[in-house]
Write a protein that binds this DNA or RNA. Sequence first.
DNA 1: ATGTGCGCACACG
DNA 2: CGTGTGCGCACAT
Length: 352
Amino acid sequence: MSESKYREWILDTIDSLRSRKARPDLERICRMVRRRHGSEPDRTCAELEKLIQEQTVLKVNYKGSISYRNAAKVQRRSRKKDDVALTTAARRSAVEEASHSDLSNGDSAFGPVDQDEEDLEADTSMAMDTDSNADEEGADESRDGQDRPSPARTYEDAAMNCASARAVSAPCSPSGNRPGPCPSPGPGCSPGSGLDCVSFQKAAERPSSLPPSSPRALAHNDWAYHSAVCPAERQHPGMQRDKGTFKNKIDISPFTAAEDSLLNGSSVKTEKMSQNLLQWTVADVASYFSAAGFPEQAVAFRTQEIDGKSLLLMQRSDVLTGLSIRLGPALKIYERHVKVLQRTHFLEYEDL
DNA sequence: ATGTGCGCACACG
DNA sequence: CGTGTGCGCACAT
């Protein structure tokens, strides 16, 4: 519950900073959240990191420094306005209603966003660089490399404490492949997360040989887009996720499964995925759809508390209307994901 | 001191 | 070109 609270706070803060034309960087975000809600920068930072991992917030490198973006607001480059406007206007109320319970964003309303289409090809641009800059050197002075007086040093501590945030993201970069575990093993930092990033990076690098309809294919592309973002999260402390063999695992994150399938490229993947579907938590489901390129809609799944079992029970109409998400993405989500997952799952069952 | 508003020069497509 | 961004500064608290 505090989770959604933080989501709201942080998203709100990012929006505020943006509208104020101030860079939404770690320092400012922490500061503002503390001032507004009294949350400790450390905590804020940890929560921010979670949001980054589930792609509610995007960490980007813009003009040489790190910025955080409200994923729901990242606009697709050049889009036909009319169509967007129409859809938006028509569904805004519904969307708002849906988001209210969880992340009522007041101002940031999901309106102008339109991230249905495959978020893949188009936007591989600005987010691209967050890598090499973000890690290592970025750990504390990413930008002060040369120019820029940057007077504010007060929050350096907070920033430092949050080095983990960067460190976790770092392995995602093509350059900084350092599978090192999270430097500050605090709560919320699972040891395995770093590994996932690396693996995922590998996955993203390999040419996509998956059918376009494959959920994994989507996810993969999405990761590429969000360079600085790290999947992982739901990694369980005990299981270091050794690729290839996990037939005795109980609770496997969709990422692990997806990633695994990418690495193996086999068809066994789906069965495992669907099998685990029963074990997916609400967070798993939301993360899955985020990864699949539907971060905005993932929120709706979360709000409606759709876990793996619920997902299996969902019907077309549920997805199209029950979630109060826009029709376009809803159709894609149903046809390409829900349906596929259900089908594979039940096929699997009949075979048994 | 700390938060806010914003002109204008960038970055980017 | 248009659009989004955020530095750097003036202003508010």
